[in-house]
Simulated scan of single mutants.
Amino acid sequence: MLRSWQFIQTVIGVIFRHPVTGATIIPILPDGRIVLVRRQDTGQWGLPGGIVDWGENIPTTVKRELAEETGLELLKIRRLVGVYSSPDRDPRIHSISVLVEAEVQGDLGAKDTLEISQVQAFFQEDLPLGNLSHDHDRQIQDYLNGLTVLA
């Protein structure tokens, strides 16, 4: 019984005292436009992405989150853009986000309408930079500057 309680305490400690891992995606359509999503909770634009589910790897998370938040199909992960781990990058929780650039295709449309209110594709010069959710302004700037970042 004591060992079971110690195990439970350890699991609770891991869950509540360690960052959550997620994936963030820079989806690139065949015409070069970048897809952003508008969040229901803040009304801000941002990159699609989310938490890695139990038993998933990053590519599986990228594929699932793209489908849920944008309606798009993942063709290929082009490159790792960065890993963002600052404790204040997400106002809700300490999270580590793995940012990837991805080739995508399909018709835009959020499946998860509780989280996402709108999906839109932007040419680089039309991106609504300056007030994106979380640290997505920095993530997009790092991507546009061709950087690979560990932050």
Rank of each mutant, 00 (worst) to 15 (best):
V14Y: 14
Q118E: 15
I8A: 10
H94G: 05
R78D: 02
E103R: 07
D88A: 14
P87K: 03
W54R: 10
L75V: 15
F123H: 05
W54C: 02
V11D: 00
L108G: 03
F122V: 03
N57R: 11
L147E: 06
M1K: 06
A102E: 11
K111H: 07
N57A: 10
N145A: 09
S85V: 09
I116W: 04
V100Y: 09
G13T: 08
R17C: 12
T21H: 14
P91A: 12
F122P: 03
V83F: 04
D137A: 06
P48D: 06
V83G: 13
G49T: 10
R89P: 03
Q40E: 15
D142R: 03
R79G: 11
H136M: 04
T24V: 12
L108Y: 04
P48A: 02
I96L: 13
T60E: 15
I116A: 04
E65L: 04
P27V: 02
R92N: 13
I8T: 02
Q141D: 00
L108D: 05
G106N: 12
A23S: 14
L75M: 01
M1S: 14
R39P: 08
S97C: 12
Q141W: 07
T21G: 00
V52W: 12
E68K: 05
I93Q: 11
W5A: 14
R17G: 15
Q6L: 12
T10Q: 14
V20W: 09
A151D: 02
E65I: 04
D112Q: 10
W54N: 08
V20Y: 05
Q44I: 09
G146V: 11
G49N: 08
L114C: 07
T24W: 10
I116N: 07
R39V: 00
V20P: 00
G55A: 11
R138C: 00
E65W: 09
E115T: 15
G71H: 11
G13V: 03
L127Q: 08
L114Q: 08
D142K: 00
I28L: 13
A67K: 15
G109H: 10
T148L: 02
A121D: 02
T60V: 12
D137F: 09
L147D: 01
G50V: 09
Q44E: 15
E69L: 11
I12R: 14
R138T: 09
E56K: 03
Q9A: 13
A23R: 05
T61H: 01
S86N: 14
R3M: 14
G46C: 08
S97T: 01
F7D: 12
K63V: 05
V81I: 14
T70V: 09
D137P: 08
G146W: 04
S133V: 12
F123Y: 07
T21W: 13
L127G: 04
